[in-house]
């Protein structure tokens, strides 16, 4: 397996050897989760909330710079947000409370505040998650979750899913090529007659592959756990590096709460 494998799951990974790439995956998971918790805990209606968002943004951009994740990658990662942007844009119009005039339109003040906070918080956490996905391979993420004591069966399922998502996705892609080379155009509801059975046979193939994989693994001594080396100790320096992001954010939040 090469460092970069194509396919959907590995697409977010950016092969490099920045300090962020070299951190143990479970440290990065803790860091990103801690950062998201601090961002979410920021009160929306405080006067200093936007200063705090600015501080968080600076921190996460710093992390992105240290990881060598460029602005283009960050912007592409943000595309996932579009549905919430639409929802947030609606909020000022549907929320209750006193109205304020913005560009000649009366909108709810609390709705406007909530929408702003929502967009800021979602954007910040998406940025942090993009940095995580760009610096950590899917396989390493699963190992990190295992290190964080996720139940073993769940880790195994995740591992199988991560390893076979590209295989199943590839199967789906070949089916699509086969359909379209026979002139299929799915433009109306009638296409379900073709797509339904295609998805059905994809399930049958996936399930049967699962049975084959299981038998093959049993014959190689699989006991329900992936063999792995002993967990390597993480130096305190690494913890410090990883926790810069959440601790910095917590410092911003604390100074806001104390001074604001």
């Amino acid at each position: 397996m090469t460092a970069v494998h194509g396919g959907v799951l590995g697409a977010a990974y950016l092969a490099a050897s920045s300090p962020v790439h070299r951190l143990a995956p479970h440290l990065k998971l803790v860091a990103v989760l801690g950062f998201a918790l601090v961002v979410v805990a920021t009160p929306v209606d405080a006067a200093w909330s936007w200063a705090a968002y600015g501080g968080y943004l600076a921190l996460v951009l710093l992390a992105a710079a240290a990881a060598g994740v460029g602005p283009a990658r960050l912007a592409r990662g943000l595309a996932i947000e579009v549905p919430f942007v639409l929802f947030a844009l609606l909020l000022p119009f549907v929320a209750q409370g006193p109205r304020v005039e913005v560009a000649g339109i009366a909108v709810s003040e609390s709705g406007l505040v909530a929408a702003g906070g929502l967009l800021a918080k979602a954007t910040l956490s998406v940025l942090a998650a993009v940095v995580l996905a760009a610096t950590t391979e899917p396989r390493a993420l699963v190992q990190g979750l295992e290190r964080l004591r996720l139940p073993s069966l769940l880790v195994q399922i995740l591992m199988f899913m991560v390893r076979y998502a590209d295989v199943v996705g590839g199967e789906l892609g070949r089916m699509r090529v086969a359909r379209e080379s026979r002139g299929f155009q799915g433009r109306h509801l009638g296409a379900l007659k073709v797509l339904g059975p295609a998805a059905g046979s994809l399930f049958v193939r996936s399930y049967e592959r699962g049975e084959r994989v299981h038998l093959a693994m049993l014959s190689r001594g699989y006991t329900g756990r992936m063999p792995g080396g002993p967990a390597t100790a993480v130096p305190a320096q690494d913890w410090l590096t990883a926790l810069t992001l959440p601790l910095g954010a917590a410092a911003v939040l604390a100074s806001g709460l104390l001074l604001g």
């Binding site: 199988f160 899913m161 199967e171 433009r187 296409a191 996936s206 699962g210 994989v213 299981h214």
Partner: peptide, 24 residues
């Protein structure tokens, strides 16, 4: 067999979620 079969079924769900079905 829970782990491999659930893992592959999850991969299937993930793949099918990427298929856009025409709604009209």
């Amino acid at each position: 067999r829970a782990a491999p079969l659930a893992g592959l079924t999850a991969a299937f769900v993930f793949a099918v979620q990427m298929v856009n079905f025409p709604v009209g």
